[in-house]
């Protein structure tokens, strides 16, 4: 166990000391801050105009229950960052291993490849987990700024926190898939391209409208099915099946990456 914990610590040190990882993470968080700031005025105005009936008009002509709509808005604002950009951060982290003989140095330090891959996956989960919590905290801060005069408790209500927890799980799982793909391909670029393609397939809703049963098997679609409300969005499966699909993608792809890394020479 101490070998594994030492390896996890080393992998975290690698992530934290990489300038490119810090840069990409900073850009993602900065972008989220900017998007949130741009939407703050509209959300605040909509909250100010909540009627006595408790309905809010976030999108023109659509009056819906304010509490639920605002939590959905909170999750949606984090979701776009989580599925679009955190897999890219994960690909950059995983791809560092295949630069300039880093993999050979890693195997010299931790020669048991199963432990090495496990340590990498755990370190990635911890790092992406922290970044995802920061994304959620930014979204929550903006929501709080909008609702503080109406219902400030909405931000930390049990239902809201449960939604945030599901989003956190999604962030970690889709990032693990991206990490595994990058490790299998030994290329940051391929990891990023595949992650973007998976995201595009889900966001364009092409498969969801034509063959929803196939769409439900894609990792990002499963993530969407997990965190969004069926009443508000066209979903291709229920949350339980989505959770199973997402966990299966993360576990199987990471296991395959581990096996392939173990069998190949460290070049």
């Amino acid at each position: 166990m101490s070998v594994l914990t030492a390896a996890i610590g080393a992998e975290l040190s690698k992530i934290k000391s990489s300038r490119i990882v810090r840069l990409v993470t900073g850009v993602v968080l900065g972008l989220h801050l900017l998007i949130g700031a741009a939407n703050l005025g509209d959300t605040t105005t909509a909250v100010r105009n909540i009627g006595a009936d408790g309905l809010i008009e976030i999108f023109a002509g659509e009056r819906v229950l304010a509490g639920e709509a605002l939590v959905d808005l909170l999750i949606a604002s984090s979701l776009q960052i989580v599925v679009m950009f955190l897999p890219v951060v994960a690909a950059v982290i995983a791809g560092q291993e295949f630069l300039q003989g880093q993999l050979a140095q890693s195997v010299l330090s931790v020669p048991r490849r199963g432990i090495l891959v496990t340590a990498k996956a755990v370190a990635l989960v911890l790092y992406i987990g922290v970044v995802a919590v920061l994304v959620e905290a930014i979204s929550s801060a903006y929501l709080y700024a909008s609702v503080q005069d109406w219902n400030p408790g909405l931000v930390y209500a049990a239902g809201t926190l449960a939604e945030q927890a599901r989003l956190l799980a999604l962030a970690v799982l889709v990032s693990l898939v991206s990490f595994a793909i990058t490790t299998l391909a030994r290329s940051t670029l391929i990891g990023v391209v595949v992650s973007v393609l998976l995201m595009a397939l889900t966001m364009t809703q092409v498969l969801a409208r034509t063959v929803p049963s196939v769409d439900a098997l894609l990792p990002v679609s499963a993530g969407r099915n997990l965190v969004l409300d069926a009443a508000d969005a066209d979903l291709s499966s229920g949350p339980v099946r989505a959770a199973v699909v997402l966990v299966a993608w993360a576990v199987v792809s990471t296991l395959v990456a581990g096996v392939v890394l173990s069998r190949r020479d460290a070049r």
Partner: peptide
């Protein structure tokens, strides 16, 4: 201790940081 061609540091990491992660990996 080994020095091998093809096992080296990532260019964007500082020298001390490169050694620090390796030290941490082996306590």
């Amino acid at each position: 201790g080994a020095l091998l061609d093809g096992a080296g540091p990532v260019p964007d990491r500082r020298g001390a940081d490169h050694l620090a992660w390796i030290a941490r990996s082996n306590r």
